[in-house]
Computed example of a mutant assay.
Amino acid sequence: MHSRAASNAYLRGDHHVAQQLSSKANKEWLKAEQLNAKAAEEILRIRNSENDMWKLDLHGLHASEAVHALEIHLKRIETQLMKSKNSLSYDAITSLIEGKEGPSFAGNVDGLDGVKGGDETSLPVLPLPRPSQTLLQVITGTGNHSHGGASLPAAVRSFLLSKGYNFHEARPGVIALRPKFRLN
């Protein structure tokens, strides 16, 4: 409302009033964005209150909100897996991934294909933790209640492709993916 009034005032040549109305419009827009973000958080909380970390229900969110929630959830899972007390040290993993010289490891390290050890001075193999569940189920829905088609599944797939995740459609409205191994 203030935005249209600001445009009209500007067109009349009343630049001072246009600036004031534009400022009010910007404040209203920020407030609306804050309320929308709060609503999205509440929807996400309610939808996932009974889910474990391996199931994320994004129903009811706008596509951009869903992608943001998925990104945060993936980082949380991937960071948690990295912090596991049974995992390799950060320095050892960094050396392995970057191909730097350093301590060698006997045999293959689970989850890091092609990393081999050398001789009897090698450190013992320390396998990465394997949670019982390793596929994240992302529930996007099929868009039955959307006007103009389902944008949420397409936005989630696009995000996953852009970030290099391997995923598949487990069933209509559910995307399954394996979180990545992260160093930070």
Rank of each mutant, 00 (worst) to 15 (best):
K83N: 14
S151Y: 04
G107R: 00
S49P: 00
Q19N: 09
P124L: 03
H145M: 10
A155Y: 06
S162H: 12
D52Y: 11
V156Q: 04
H59W: 05
K180M: 13
P124M: 01
I97E: 10
M1Y: 11
S95H: 07
V17I: 09
H62T: 12
L61R: 02
Q34N: 11
Q80W: 15
H62M: 14
S104K: 14
L58A: 03
K75S: 13
M53A: 12
G164P: 08
W54E: 11
L183Y: 05
A63M: 08
V109Y: 00
I139Y: 03
S104T: 15
G13E: 06
L11S: 13
V138W: 01
S151K: 15
H145G: 07
L136C: 11
S22P: 00
L35I: 10
Y165E: 08
S104Y: 04
E71K: 14
G107H: 00
T94N: 11
N8V: 14
A9K: 03
S3P: 00
F181I: 09
I46Q: 13
S7I: 09
R45G: 05
G117K: 00
V138E: 03
E42M: 12
S162K: 15
G111D: 04
D57G: 06
S7R: 10
T121M: 10
L96I: 13
H68S: 14
H73D: 09
T142V: 15
T121I: 06
S132R: 08
L81F: 02
E101N: 15
P124C: 01
K85N: 12
R47L: 05
S84T: 04
T79Q: 11
A5S: 11
S146A: 15
E28D: 11
S162A: 15
A32S: 09
K180A: 10
T94F: 06
T134A: 07
P103T: 07
I46H: 08
E50N: 15
T142C: 11
N184Y: 07
G99M: 10
E169K: 08
P131T: 04
L58S: 02
A66I: 09
P172H: 05
A18E: 05
D119W: 02
Q19T: 08
G99L: 11
G114A: 01
K116S: 05
N166T: 09
L126C: 08
S23R: 06
P153Q: 07
R182N: 07
L35A: 11
A176C: 13
M1I: 04
W54T: 10
P153E: 07
A92H: 08
P103L: 09
Q133M: 13
L11P: 00
A92Y: 02
E78Q: 13
A25M: 05
P179D: 06
L152K: 06
D91V: 06
D113T: 10
G111C: 03
L44H: 02
S22W: 02
G173R: 01
P124R: 01
L11M: 12
E50R: 13
I139E: 08
P179Y: 04
I97S: 05
Q34Y: 07
S146D: 15
A150Y: 03
L11V: 14
N48E: 09
P127V: 00
A39G: 01
K100S: 12
